[in-house]
């Protein structure tokens, strides 16, 4: 039963390393992290993260093809763990995109059209006080965002 190379969880019975068992989860990690570090920057790849979802789908595909290649129990376990990681990371992005990012407070709490801006002064990036009500005497676009993450 002692097959050369089978001690490693991702090895096949032939002794050849079953690379796909590792490539799948590695691609999945890239698919998840690259959304937050890279593809988040552009609306085209942010609003619907099709590119990252495709990468994660590819990762699951690679992990699936690794399974029949495993010839030993350890190889099958390694392949199974790899597939689990790929699916879990894909699930994480799906949860973030399709559930978590819709969690917002009731819009009814936000002031309606017609509301006058309050006289509040806030500091600009240059440290100057800016009165938003005074700034809105003519036309003003006022954008709120969640801050630098």
């Amino acid at each position: 039963m002692a097959e050369p190379g089978s001690a490693d969880g991702a090895s096949s019975a032939t002794g050849r390393f079953n690379h796909r068992a590792w490539i799948g989860p590695l691609v999945a990690i890239f698919g998840l992290l690259s959304y937050f570090t890279l593809f988040y920057r552009w609306p085209l790849t942010r609003d619907l993260p099709w590119l990252n979802l495709l990468i994660l789908l590819a990762a699951i595909g690679v992990s699936l093809t690794a399974l029949p290649r495993a010839r030993s129990t350890a190889g099958r376990v390694g392949g199974g763990v790899g597939l689990f990681v790929s699916v879990a990371l894909a699930g994480l992005l799906c949860f973030y995109v399709f559930s978590l990012s819709y969690r917002l407070p009731d819009a009814g709490r936000v002031v309606d059209d017609g509301t006058r801006l309050p006289e509040i002064s806030l500091a600009s990036a240059r440290g100057e006080a800016v009165d938003v009500a005074a700034a809105a005497r003519d036309k003003l676009i006022l954008v709120f965002y969640r801050g630098h993450w």
Binding site: L104, P105, V110, V111, D112, D113, G114, T115, R116, L117, A133, A136, R137, D138, K139, L140, I141, L142, V143, F144, Y145, R146
Partner: peptide
């Protein structure tokens, strides 16, 4: 929450 307003003559 992310929000964008257009304000004219002091009113939203």
């Amino acid at each position: 929450r992310p929000a964008t307003f257009i304000v004219q003559d002091g009113r939203i």
